[in-house]
Amino acid sequence: MSEKHNHVEEHRDDEASKLGMWLFIFTELLLFGGLFIVYSIFRHEYYQAFRESSLELSVTIGAINTIALLFSSMTVAMALTAMQKNDKKTALIMIGITLLMALVFLVNKYFEWGHKIEHGLYPGSALMPLLDRGHLLYFSLYFFMTGLHAFHIIVGMVLLFICLFKVKNGSIHPEKYALLENGALYWHLVDLIWIFLFPLMYLIS
């Protein structure tokens, strides 16, 4: 038997792995969903304090981050399109832009949080327990929800870095791109959560 005929068919099911990714996304949605319910009840109870606290956030930074995430969501979708069209170079560029946008988001977040921390506003600080209950709840939820979201950004970046590497070395190719597709799905999830976080945290009128 020649080498050629010795080839073992690779066992894989892209459709099932995508379904698995979606099931994971559902758990993530419910995780953040629960937090949004907590947020809505306390916002209802301490509306004035939530409103005052939200004025401390910069709508400009929030809007820039929204645009960065929406744009990156498009570029990662374009990376998948490029891969399906067997255009490796475009795919690499698009994943690169997505990662750059993610970095922009995190740098913005760094300055935003840094500004708060400078003023002694962070979980466990000496100032936090002195705030009244409404303000305390707002900032606790703010740090927890945006922090958990930022953590998802970092995980997404790691995932996309792996994709970038695998596209480059050819282990993700037009016949096999499930990892890139699932990585893109994860990245869209991160965008999806921010779509709700932005108006709820930054825009309370």
Partner: peptide, 19 residues
């Protein structure tokens, strides 16, 4: 084995969605 069944979305569509 190619078992990709995913739909390809055109760049133009993605651009319009972003807009």
């Amino acid at each position: 084995m190619a078992n990709n069944v995913s739909h390809t979305t055109e760049y133009r569509t993605l651009g319009k969605v972003l807009l």
